[in-house]
Nucleic acid binder design. Structure first.
Lengths: 246, 246
DNA sequence: CCAAAAGTGTTCAACTTACACCCATGT
DNA sequence: ACATGGGTGTAAGTTGAACACTTTTGG
């Protein structure tokens, strides 16, 4: 075994979740390449934003760079959750054909360090989104290449698991939000609907959820009160929950 | 940017937790090399078992192989939790000197995919442990090289977080165990002591915790009843808890 | 006046917490 | 007989779950 046998290509891939008024969405970037099975035919499909990491680049920095380059988004909550290194991740000839268009050498295996990211969709839209980046409802995603379906499942679990420990839902919401928006965000991550009265009773005990003397405007129904998340109060009052799985 | 700029060395590192009758322990392997600052002097210290991964090896397989080769342990619960790729992980000259003894080239950066593992200490001892592998109490660890202190902290968090979702404590216990052993295992992971009566009331509701008609023998006190964990019953009865962080 | 979403309280059951003493065994 | 860890119950407080109607606004 010599040293070059021990060298590998690495990418970072980002699963970006965005919350609109109804449900969770995922940000995908379009790839466009010639179908190797059908020359002359152009395939257009979608994948998670991801790219190679250079040898002098910190992982987290690489993830932010790749996300900025491919989507235009730069101010976002980002967290590494798992590295995927199966020997079969590149087994689809279409995926290998596409890879040749971006790195024209034969690749044996690519490890990818996967990140999840959370952002309110409107904010992402303000940060002039790349013309190649598109939001998809999580309930209606196109077929994903590589092992991206597995990465997505793993990302959803990672976000849920994170929510057990930190109120990361606030990363999905704009600065001022309604309790219904908050509830929808929880529901999107948990994957279940919650009882409105019980939900409100529960969150009304959270010291870091600050009610503002402001209400929605120009809505065709009773305007909802606006709230904000106080990171300071959260940090000061959080206690480590002690529960264990049943 | 050419292709070789995009290639990296990477290793797997395993943080092996073992439970003895009192507390959590961690398995370290000794490294032995000449002090670059003081030629002729031999440094002996300890690190997590870890090694390079070859280009044709699955990640999880590599972790099991490395663990077997360096410690002798082969039947163990193992789970990937994070990849460490800081540019400064190799900044200590002593660590670079040691690396040269195992791979005699100049290395720029090594990414490491970190795993945690759980095993009952006695079981590990049966699997003829390598003479270079040693158990240390988690409350009394030697100084660790590289970024291993950070990896340890992250591993402890990962195990705790896992315990929120699955009763992985049972991986630390022998097949038959007492409620006190179970409690100590929880306490070791959680890092806090628990009330005996409340603990027992709580676990007595777990359908997958099976009491045996067997008791401890040859102990200088009232013998404790033995229990076992039923993975089957756990799988059949588990429900996804719906709680969120406060 | 209609549609749409906001907002609100009670009851019952389940769970959490705090807390102290006797028991069975080996030496 | 003593040292060691095993084993047990209750009361008070808190939290979780189920459940339906009125309010405010824009169109």
């Amino acid at each position: 075994m010599n040293s070059s046998d021990l060298m590998h290509h690495f990418t970072v891939d980002c699963v970006v979740f965005g919350m609109d008024s109804h449900e969770l969405n995922v940000l995908l970037v379009q790839r466009e390449f010639e179908d190797p099975d059908n020359p002359g035919n152009i395939i257009k499909d979608y994948k998670f934003p991801g790219n190679f990491v250079s040898f002098s680049e910190d992982l987290d920095v690489a993830a932010l760079r790749v996300l900025r380059e491919l989507t235009g988004i730069s101010d976002i909550y980002l967290e590494q959750f798992k590295t995927f290194g199966s020997l079969t991740r590149l087994s689809n000839p279409k995926d290998r054909a596409w890879l040749k268009t971006i790195l024209p050498i034969e690749l044996k295996r690519i490890l990818t360090v996967a990140y999840f990211a959370l952002i309110p969709i409107e904010k992402a839209k303000q940060e002039n989104l790349s013309s190649r980046a598109f939001w998809f409802k999580i309930s209606d995603l196109p077929t994903l290449p590589f092992d991206h379906p597995e990465i997505l499942k793993s990302a959803q679990k990672a976000v849920l698991s994170k929510l057990y420990q930190d109120p990361v839902v606030y990363e999905l919401l704009p600065e001022k939000f309604t309790l219904t928006q908050l509830q929808k965000s929880y529901e999107g991550i948990i994957g279940q609907s919650l009882d409105k009265r019980n939900f409100r009773k529960r969150v009304s005990n959270l010291p870091y959820l600050i009610s503002l003397n402001q209400w929605q405007q120009n809505v065709a129904h009773k305007p909802a009160q606006l709230y904000r998340f106080s990171k300071n109060i959260y940090e000061q009052t959080k206690k480590d929950n002690l529960y264990f799985s049943t």
